[in-house]
């Protein structure tokens, strides 16, 4: 369960977030939809504690992330934008490094990595160095890395960026699987179809403000028989 309320953040004169509030319940996928520079990444960065809000709060299971950043990071699995791997380390080593930093010891760590390698179909590249991986392979490894400590909450910043159709489809499958296990998932995207196909709840952001939010169906209803794309264009242009 993730909740943000009255979240605001400025960088100098630029207002990145202005009074943003929403809640992402467990067992659902919440999508932050908005054009580039809308403040989606800033919002997620505050949630995973690399940025601090100027006003408002962000809570995970009712615990404030600003007050308890280390606790929050243990509860979260994070796939930041353009998640970088260590090119000189193999897939297993990349995942193991984060596992150890999460305090997971052998033999539990190896068992967990085997499990992730099997689930994300990484066998072929498991012992290859990350140098030269395709974008799809990198995203898969980064996702495995984010899941190594079995987090109950998952934050993904533009997870389908640079993925081909097949990789996007399998990413959707994993996310649906995680959702079915009762996890709380928040992802950001600037692609309407993707959010509509994947998310239960949608928060549309533009210029650091929320312009519309609700379940995917509710938003469809509210805006009549317009496609989500039309809603998006309308709300963003109107703000």
């Amino acid at each position: 369960m993730i909740e943000v309320s009255g979240l605001s953040k400025r960088f100098g004169a630029v207002v990145a977030l202005d009074d943003v509030s929403f809640a992402a319940p467990d067992g659902r996928i919440t999508g932050l939809l908005g054009p580039n520079g809308a403040g989606k990444s800033t919002c997620l960065r505050i949630l995973y504690t690399v940025l601090k809000p100027d006003a408002g709060y962000a809570k995970i299971n009712d615990v404030d992330v600003v007050e308890h950043p280390l606790w929050a990071r243990r509860e979260l699995g994070v796939l930041p934008h353009g998640a970088g791997l260590y090119p000189q380390l193999t897939t297993r080593e990349n995942i193991a490094y984060f596992g150890r930093l999460h305090g997971i010891k052998e033999p539990a760590l190896s068992a967990r990595i085997d499990q992730l390698v099997a689930r994300l179909e990484l066998e072929e590249i498991a012992d290859r160095r990350a140098k030269g991986f395709s974008q799809g392979q990198r995203t898969k490894v980064a996702l495995a890395r984010a899941l190594v400590h079995r987090p109950k909450n998952l934050l993904l910043d533009e997870p389908t960026n640079g993925l081909d159709v097949m990789s996007t489809l399998s990413l959707r499958n994993w996310l649906s699987e995680l959702k079915a296990r009762g996890q709380c998932i928040v992802l950001s995207s600037h692609i309407m179809q993707e959010v509509a196909a994947l998310c239960d709840d949608i928060v549309i952001v533009a210029h650091g403000r929320i312009v519309a939010q609700g379940t995917t169906e509710a938003l469809r209803e509210r805006f009549g028989n317009k496609s989500l794309e039309d809603i998006f264009v309308e709300t963003v242009a109107g703000s």
Binding site: H81, L85, L101, H102
Partner: peptide
């Protein structure tokens, strides 16, 4: 520059 700093900062380590 590699983009691996941000994920690293999300682990529960100071």
């Amino acid at each position: 520059e590699r983009g691996s700093l941000e994920p690293l900062l999300t682990v529960p380590v100071g």
